[in-house]
Amino acid sequence: MKKLFKYRRTGLIGSPYKILVLNIVAWVIGVLWITPFIGIFMTSIKPFREVVLHGWWTISPFTFTLKNYVDALFNPMFSLSRGILNSFIIAIPSTVIPVTVAALTAYGFARFSLPIKKYLFATILFLMAVPQQMTIIPIFFLSKNLSLLNTYLGLILVHSSWGIPWITFFLRNYFSLLPVELEEAARVDGATDFQVFRKVVLPLAIPGIISASVLQFAWVWNDFFFALMLIFDPDKMVVTQMLPRLKGQYQVDWGLLSSGSVIAMLAPLLVYAFFNKYYMSGFRGWAMKR
């Protein structure tokens, strides 16, 4: 019994047996996770004929082609490049607006006292639990009455307000882990509350802000539901809406569909890759008390 306890206490690091087990688990999950992507990627660089005749997992015959990508991007009916542009038009403001608003809100929650702070924060947590489907009808009518239906602005506002609660929650925890003495030092040094926020808190919270931004961006980019409900002009459709349309009306062009998917994945993937360093440290900072 004593020995068992001791074994557990030494933890994962140090015991080669545990490292092996951990590696196997990690690899299994990793392979399972990435397999569908590999399949889609292979399909996307094969001619349509090969996919239909030999299936999507075959190595031979294998003819490399980029035709699918060209077709997907410049499809005369449903241009994916237009969809990507629209997605950027939607996703960038839908990231910047809620992160800015939520950062200020979160700082208020983290550092200032107001009478019903606890209840307000509880409300925010509660709002995070509301499913999209529950809100879509009121959102639809609200947009319609404000003449925001089928406009970029309408979708941006919906995404922004959807992002604010969870980003507030995320950043509040991040801010409250920052050492408060730095802010006090700045106050004594003559800074106003807003200067303290802008010159001391914000630079120190960069990893947290970037983490939140990356997640929000990916979330907005990948969203299908809100876009489907609120945008129906083909010229304004975002990339996730374009994808199913690439399927075609009478036959499914798998090559086109898979290359479209890969293209659509690219933006969030690049964002993750580019900000990986901050993103990871943001989460580490979030999870640990310093």
């Binding site: 050492p179 003495e181 730095l182 006090e184 030092a185 700045a186 106050r187 004594v188 040094d189 003559g190 800074a191 106003t192 001391v200 120190l204």
Partner: peptide, 17 residues
């Protein structure tokens, strides 16, 4: 505090990292 014209050194010095 900003209007009191005081200087303060904190226990952990609180330098802006």
């Amino acid at each position: 505090p900003r209007d009191r014209n005081i200087g303060m050194v904190f226990q952990n010095w609180a330098l802006y990292p």
